[in-house]
Design a protein around this nucleic acid. Structure first.
Length: 497
RNA sequence: GCCCCCAUCGUCUAGAGGCCUAGGACGCCACCCUUUCAAGGUGGAGAUCAGGGGUUCGAAUCCCCUUGGGGGCACCA
């Protein structure tokens, strides 16, 4: 019988959750859920200088937010993990790496290296000058016991290097097919344990993937060239090799690997802008994978159902924010009203904190305008721009935009005054869009105005903007008194200006 | 420099030898709807399938070469 798949996402808490990490996590999640496998989260925090609890929190929070639940691993930053293969933070697994390194040392598959940073640096510069590929020269590969003792006596600390050996290393990558490397091109014996005793990535990843019984290593293509090193380590340690699947990279607009410098890479920044999880997941799934049908707007469950590693692409995919925004709009329109309101809350509160609105609307107020704002929201964060005028005491009206192109100031003043009377004539109880439109249209017709011009003058007067939700719904949301007051203010501004 | 990977509209992609005079989506343009802005609808521009050789009756699809792009070569992950 074949065991069910075990996959993992192994982020390093050395920076905020990156789009690329989220995508890799998503594909692991999709594969695990589609196959009924197990999804593990492991924190690779061996770079103590760069790791921090704040980043760990950002990463865990981000993955939770995306809805990528894992079966084993830490749930909350800084707290314990669950699962039978713990601990799941590498700094808590140090004894395992030490034992594995000792085994390799004892079998002479690894050796102590006493080279100093200066020596290594000089080697590297010489190789560079000679236009040779960088590679460890093997200075410590065959030290005698006496030579070692001499270096120890000097107080030099030893790193541990793995003997790469020679021969071909081949494997069948699920997305790339047969790939092979000549061990001679791996850059020589590489360090697996630092001079201070802390283990390095290539080593820990193998020890842990073996210990956690990972069956499929699904990761970014940037790891493809590292894979032979890992395979050699699996073999040296006597562990079975997992299957590998290297995903295409997510690219900047210039087709280089997506980077913070050239693109917005932090998931937290997308969340802060008001992208919703459904859209982000949907979008990310479609970068490097497609259903093979014309379906594009898919929920995570629908994606799980259709997902297949074999149909993942080989070529990198440029991150296209416009397409993400389109999908975000699609998903915002699909949310249930109360769900949308709940998700809008933090953004409205942020507007309030920033002083851009004077008060926070109630659920009922929000629910009332939802039908006319939802299709105008590319992101949740655009709620302020779109409807903020509803929640301020007064709006700033620029008299230059208040006067419609075909009108002059006098006509505008006349129009606003007449509109005020017309709107005032609509009683408080009948204050609905259907009651407002007919008399205002009649007014325009009676005075020989184009309805659009009248409406635009009113729109700017009551909202301060030229692009708004439908005018009559807007006026109703604003309420009779506030509408009349804003019309008065605008008329005054026109008179004095 | 060395090794490895990749290559269909601007972008994401469909396409696994004949169904392709290459389909869809985003974006763009036009029109319709319309009080603005959106959303929606319809239509359009946009790819000699990187180029060149093969294989085949037939190639975007298979093979080779070239070109281009990317990734990796740390006591980072």
């Amino acid at each position: 019988m074949t065991d069910s798949p075990r996959v993992r996402i192994a982020p390093s808490p050395t920076g905020p959750l990156h789009i690329g990490t989220a995508r890799t996590a998503l594909f692991n999640y999709l594969f695990a859920r589609h196959t009924g496998g197990t999804f593990v989260l492991r924190l690779e925090d061996t770079d103590q200088a760069r790791s921090s609890i704040a980043y760990e929190k950002d990463i865990l929070d981000g993955l939770h937010w995306l809805g990528l639940t894992w079966d084993e691993g830490p749930e909350v930053a800084g707290e314990g993990a669950r699962g039978p293969h713990g601990p799941y933070r590498q700094m808590e697994r140090l004894p395992l790496y030490a034992a594995a390194a000792d085994r390799l040392l004892a079998a002479d598959m690894a050796y102590r290296c006493y080279c100093t940073a200066e020596e290594l640096d000089a080697d590297r510069k010489a190789q560079e000058a000679a236009k040779l590929p960088p590679r460890y020269v093997g200075r410590c590969a065959a030290l005698t016991a006496d030579e070692r003792a001499a270096r120890e006596a000097e107080g030099r600390r030893a790193a541990v290097r793995f003997r790469v050996g020679d021969g071909l290393v081949a494997f069948d990558d699920i997305v790339r097919g047969h790939v092979e490397f000549d061990a001679a091109n791996l850059g020589g014996d590489f360090v697996i344990v630092r001079g201070d005793g802390s283990p390095l990535y290539h080593f820990t990843v193998v020890v842990d993937d073996a210990a956690m019984q990972i069956s499929h290593v699904i990761r970014g293509e940037d790891h493809l060239s590292n894979t032979p090193k890992h395979i050699l380590l699996f073999r040296a340690l006597g562990y079975p090799e997992p299957r590998f699947a290297h995903l295409p990279l997510i690219l900047n607009a210039d087709r280089t690997k997506m980077s913070k410098r050239k693109s917005q890479t932090a998931i937290a920044d997308y969340i802060a802008e008001g992208f919703i999880r459904e859209a982000l997941v949907n979008y990310l799934a479609l970068l490097g994978w497609a259903t093979g049908t014309e379906e594009e707007v898919l929920s995570i469950d629908e994606i799980v159902e259709r997902f297949d590693l074999d149909s993942v692409h080989k070529g990198g995919a440029v991150f296209d924010r416009e397409r993400l925004e389109w999908l975000n709009g699609q998903w915002i329109r699909r949310l249930a009203p109360d769900d949308l309101i709940e998700r809008l809350r933090p953004f409205i509160e942020a507007e309030h904190v920033a002083g851009r609105i004077d008060w926070i609307p109630s659920d009922d107020e929000l629910r009332a305008i939802l039908p006319v704002v939802r299709e105008r929201l590319p992101t949740l964060g655009s709620i302020g721009d779109l409807a903020g005028f509803l929640w301020v005491r007064s709006v700033a009206v620029d008299t230059a935009v208040l006067v419609p192109k075909r009108w002059d100031p006098a006509t505008t003043r006349d129009g606003l005054t007449a509109a005020r009377s017309t709107i005032a004539a609509v009683g408080e109880v009948a204050f609905e869009a259907d009651e407002l439109e007919p008399p205002l249209r009649a007014l325009a017709e009676a005075r020989g105005w184009k309805a659009g011009d009248l409406f635009m003058a009113i729109r700017v007067a009551v909202t301060g903007r030229t692009a708004t939700p439908p005018l009559f719904d807007t006026i109703v949301a604003l309420g009779r008194e506030r509408t009349l007051e804003r019309l008065d203010r605008a008329t005054e501004a026109l008179a004095s200006g």
